[in-house]
Design a protein around this nucleic acid. Sequence first.
DNA 1: TCAAAAGTGTTGAATGTACACCCATGG
DNA 2: CCATGGGTGTACATTCAACACTTTTGA
Lengths: 254, 254
Amino acid sequence: MTVVPPTAATLPVTVDVVALTVRDDTLQVLLVERAVEPHRGALALPGGFVLPGEDLVTAAARELAEETGVTPPGHLEQLRTYGPLGRDPRGPVLSVAYLLVAPHFGVVEAGSDAAAAGWHPVAAVLPADGEGAGAARLAFDHARILADGVERTRSKLEYSALATAFCADEFTVTDLRRVYEAVWGVRLDPRNFSRKATGTPGLLRETGRTTSGGTGRPAALYRAARPVVRAGGLADAAADVTALLNPPLLRPAP
Amino acid sequence: MTVVPPTAATLPVTVDVVALTVRDDTLQVLLVERAVEPHRGALALPGGFVLPGEDLVTAAARELAEETGVTPPGHLEQLRTYGPLGRDPRGPVLSVAYLLVAPHFGVVEAGSDAAAAGWHPVAAVLPADGEGAGAARLAFDHARILADGVERTRSKLEYSALATAFCADEFTVTDLRRVYEAVWGVRLDPRNFSRKATGTPGLLRETGRTTSGGTGRPAALYRAARPVVRAGGLADAAADVTALLNPPLLRPAP
DNA sequence: TCAAAAGTGTTGAATGTACACCCATGG
DNA sequence: CCATGGGTGTACATTCAACACTTTTGA
């Protein structure tokens, strides 16, 4: 069935998932503690080898479920591919990284190959450049993969509706603002943000409902204007959550 | 040496290169005519199988040189990864696509596995949506890969200094504007563009020299403010040509 | 002197930013 | 009534967009 030139290499391929959420106004990443060598005991991104006949997205969802008990409830997109040389002591391994952005989802529990699974503030795992050794080292080149995923997320908040993928089904403008503030690490003016968010086409869809029960005036509830899709087939066609926003919500200049 | 779980698949891996340039005020892509099955005779992106012990960028440069005689003179960055299922009649194949952006470079000549190699206007190969069958079909899923590469390029012109990678070592503001016009397919006001380009930090570096010989007033010559780097190691650290521009050069609204 | 291309000035519109102020609810 | 958070009005600054106009060259 598989016929390739005799000179071609075939490589073991893994998928790794950078699963991000905002909890307690903090950007957090889902990590596992490795239960097997190499890097046994170290923190790592959930992931593992692609099985025969399996597609990449399938493998990413399977590994995530196996190791953390989480079924992708949010936006899954390919991040980039790493390797194959110099990243695994066992030899050449190609790794395709995925970015999962989701509202804070339910219980995580350690599964196969993982001694533990849980959320960690990105700031505690990735030392912001300038500071010394931030915290526990991640296995393999996962620190770099995580950094790439966070950077991609920060950029995409400006130019796409990705921030809505961090929010639950229905959410307020304040919920959305807290996502921007947590991911960018800045404070935004609630009043101007509200106008900008509601005035940007393709970001919010009104529901007509409002919050209730909290203190203060009830807030209008919105849904994401663009569907949060699983990366997979040729999903780029329709205007999904990654489509360019016009005008963008630019980060305040430093 | 290579030790992977017995259940893991190993996959044949190819690299494909979307090489773009601007020639005759038109965005063009480097294509080869396949000399071997499958898809013999069809147009395809240059590319091929990764060899044992080889890294991805190395393989991309090698295949490009072998099939087209071109040595990457410009900006090479990873585009994304496709597959492994449903894209090659021979079976599962993973393909890592690269984007090469370069000034119009020298002679191209067909090499191994290629009956011909040459530049083709993107518009002639990728039918703009809305029109029917645009032109010759590309082999495999290369039409989609090309579309992704073009889309990425269009976006990156807005938010990074990537346009300078289309230009020769020294270039004028008009040269740069023609890149934007060709890639976006729009006309830009030369006077406002000039102000915007020279006023955007991180885009241009003055040389003090000017053009001469042409008709009209000589134009100031610039160099790219940010180095055009080969994708490869951890090259993202320094502010290279892909670093975010602030403020961006936004496309005119449709 | 003229044509051509480069580059600057200017003006009204649109957008961003800071903050005063009003609105709607729970206690 | 007050405290609290949601949301609008407004004024000023900045940027954008269109285009008149000046500059500098070759013919």
